[in-house]
Design a protein around this nucleic acid. Structure first.
Length: 218
DNA sequence: ATGACGATTTACT
DNA sequence: GTAAATCGTCATA
């Protein structure tokens, strides 16, 4: 993909809702130390909208060592460790130190599928079918080997092992951009119900935490 | 120093 | 459907 497809600082500085929606159909690229390239098309995201968002790590303006990346420049990676075993990958998108970000929840694998399978099998059992390879926030980080060491990375830096690209065909025929409540934040009160999750309905690579056909992806 | 919990995934009944 | 795995982070003391 030509370099001008790569997202630059101003592309990220549009706030969490616009970015969460706009990243659908874009490509996340991971360049391994060996130079090998892994890539996936973004099919599901969530917006975390700042200090007033009860579900956000930055709720109430909280600022700690863990979430420091949320206060960094647009285009910074925020990777955090959770449940004692999983990493989640976010893209920071706030201007002037506003602690807002977009969580990547699912990818359609495009390049390096066999390597992704290796990464997913490394700490699991059998290798999953393609539609489950990157179909969850922790599954995609495992498939792409995104970990703690990528926290605070500048995704607009030429040397970054992670970057985002505009896709040639952002939305395909048969796909319908959709939105609904976020996942796994039931304790967030009113904020649990707000429609801040975005996905491409009709694409088989989204996450399926709930039953199919009830406002969830798939 | 201690205890509760988590932006999840997987296996099992 | 429910439960286990597993440990860093945060709030409280």
């Amino acid at each position: 993909m030509p370099d001008h497809y790569r997202l630059k600082r101003p592309d990220f500085a549009i706030g969490p809702v616009a970015l969460a929606r706009g990243l659908l159909g874009c490509t996340l690229v991971r360049v391994l130390d060996t130079g090998e390239r892994l890539a996936g098309r973004i099919v599901e995201t969530e917006a975390y909208v700042g200090a007033r968002d009860r579900a956000s790590h930055s709720f109430g303006g909280r600022r700690t060592e863990r979430n420091e990346a949320m206060y960094a420049e647009p285009g910074t990676a925020y990777v955090y460790f959770t449940y004692g075993m999983h990493f989640c990958f976010n893209v920071v998108c706030g201007r002037a130190g506003q602690p807002v970000a977009v969580l990547l929840r699912a990818l359609e694998p495009l390049e390096g599928l066999s390597r992704m399978r290796q990464h997913r099998a490394a700490s699991g059992g059998a290798t999953p079918p393609d539609h489950l390879l990157c179909s969850g926030p922790a599954r995609l980080t495992q498939a792409l080997d995104v970990t703690r060491r990528h926290n605070l990375l500048d995704l607009t830096d030429r040397a970054s092992p992670l970057l985002l690209e505009r896709g040639p065909q952002r939305i395909r025929p048969g796909e319908r951009p959709s939105r609904g409540p976020r996942i796994g934040i039931d304790s967030a009160g009113d904020w649990a119900a707000k429609p801040l999750r975005f996905w491409l309905a009709g694409n088989p690579h989204t996450s399926r935490p709930g039953r199919v056909g009830r406002g969830g992806p798939g």
